[in-house]
């Protein structure tokens, strides 16, 4: 046996290194990749919405701001006499303060869709209305938050109140995230986050982000 090891120690050490590499990939690298995927998925669609809001915004404000005052009033007269769909908007922009009144334009005529779009965009995915920011639990990302919301889990209190049976039930629905609840100790984290005991939380789970 000793002779075999001596003769083939290079192969054996190589296998050991490969085992280490595989373990590193499983426990470190693949997790990092997952987080990146979550990030890209999370941001999908948002920029498009914001851009759409800009596209929908009536361009009159920007154009008028660039024109000299005389031309602005001329443009306003033309717009008023032609009884275009947005005369009120054009009139509002004859002021030299044309740069400011995005809101004014929104009230007048075709600005309405922009206002609606603006109302939709600002809420970040991680802080839904009527619940806690579950991503504050270490190990929970936007994807898991979406899964939890599908199960109507929205607050730290919900998670803190889980029994073992609840954990098993939820865990069974987490797909490739199975086992995370116990591994990352969500219940304990949620309990501490719910009570707001930051010192105890950071002592046990590290710094809050």
């Amino acid at each position: 046996m000793a002779e075999i090891v001596q003769a083939n120690w290079l192969l054996i050490v190589g296998a050991l290194v490969i085992g280490l590499l595989v373990a590193w990939w499983i426990f470190v690298a693949s997790r990092r990749t997952t987080v990146q995927l979550e990030d890209t998925d999370d941001s999908e669609g948002k920029p498009a919405k914001r851009n759409q809001a800009l596209i929908d915004a009536p361009p009159a404000a920007r154009k008028d701001a660039d024109l000299p005052a005389g031309k602005v009033s001329q443009a306003a007269e033309i717009a008023a006499s032609a009884a275009s769909p947005g005369p009120a908007s054009a009139a509002a922009n004859t002021d030299a303060t044309a740069a400011a009144p995005l809101g004014t334009d929104a009230e007048a005529g075709d600005g309405t869709p922009m206002a609606a779009a603006l109302n939709k965009t600002p809420a970040p995915a991680a802080t839904p209305s009527g619940g806690d920011d579950l991503t504050r639990i270490k190990g929970v990302g936007p994807k898991l938050v979406a899964l939890l919301h599908d199960m109507d889990v929205r607050s730290f209190a919900d998670i803190a109140a889980w029994s073992d049976a609840d954990i098993d039930r939820v865990d069974a629905q987490l797909g490739r995230f199975q086992g995370r609840i116990r591994r990352d100790n969500w219940v304990e984290q949620a309990r501490l986050l719910q009570t707001g005991d930051k010192a105890a939380y950071e002592a046990k789970f590290g710094r809050t982000s």
Binding site: V5, N8, L11, G19, L21, A23, W24, I26, F27, R183
Partner: peptide, 30 residues
Amino acid sequence: MPIWMEVLVLMLLAYAVGLGLGWAIWGRDT
């Protein structure tokens, strides 16, 4: 048992030890 098979078993053992070591280092406390 042929020698190559013994070597293979030793390599598998070393691989398993490497996996266990990696788990202890990176996988246990997260």
